[in-house]
Amino acid sequence: MNKNLLKKIYQIMHLIRFSQEHLINIYHPEDKMKCPIHFCKGQEALASCLSQFLVKDDYILSHHRSHGYYISKKCPIDQMVAEFYGKRSGSNEGLAGSQELSYSKNNFYSGTILSGMFSIALGTAYVQKIYNKRNITYTVIGDGGMEEGIVYETLNLASLKSLPILFICENNRYSVHTNINERTKSSNFKKKVESFDIKYIKISEYEIESIFKKLKEAIQYIKSNAKPVFIEYDTMRTCGHVGPEDDDKEHDYRKLDLLKWKNKDSFIDLRKKLIRISNIKSINLIEKRNINIVKSAVTKAQKAKTLNFNTSLKYNLIKKFSNKVKSFAKPSIDFKSNQKTTKLNPY
């Protein structure tokens, strides 16, 4: 793969990695980000590669571990961090936090109730399809999310309607601290997905080149066949499930897994490679820029104001209408009391 492309991917990947590490480090004892945050350290590679394919009109609908995809969709770091701090300058003015992070200008959305976003992808993709937009909906889910029933309704509909969706399943083998083998007899996603007549691609490699290649194959397949693809991406979360705490220390739930993945960190691998084929200076420059972006986002967020409470109440239901509605008709009071009730039949 060409050096410049690798550097571009590295820029995103480092921004994700550093932002996660930095926020993990400052979370305590500062205790100013008072919301559940699912960091994605260790799982950055696919999002970073994806960044190279995305255009603005593509949608990303992500599960709770969303920061990598937010960054890959080129959404502003300032607003992400401010959102975690619960500030008005946050992408959702502090009302969503990490769990429901979104940035509508760039068509990036996420949500924490398992598998909802996976299914909402049906609609964005349906609109892309029937109004002839040549865009794709990317939706991200975890191995735990794959257990919800709505997932299978969704796969059926996506296949039935031939929708331009890339389903990305980040399989880190854990749902919170429970291993996949304790949760199902059949962890074979290939079988399940293919039973809906959907193309399945497995990414079990950790090297960026292989990940990029398979992603490209998937996207090309969607574009030329106008059909969905499902990617199962084997990955490893190298931080706690939620919050900055190291839950391996506390719960010791995946010792063997950690050992297996010890030398398979896509980020470290790519960094080494780039130093070899490029030079350390240019890598440091990328990193320095990213570090500044994140640190200045934190400083700004710390100083920012919170949203006015009364304003927040108005966001629930905004009484606006399509421009087709020029005015409202008056009620009619013709209706008489001598109405027949409907005769029913078994239908």
Partner: peptide
């Protein structure tokens, strides 16, 4: 049949589909 269609018995996903359609500018 693109704008008017019958559907499988999958009320949850159909509602989610409507959410997505509405999100991207349609009026489902």
């Amino acid at each position: 049949s693109k704008r008017v269609f019958d559907a499988p018995a999958a009320e949850s996903a159909l509602t989610a589909m409507g959410t997505g359609m509405a999100l991207s500018g349609a009026r489902p």
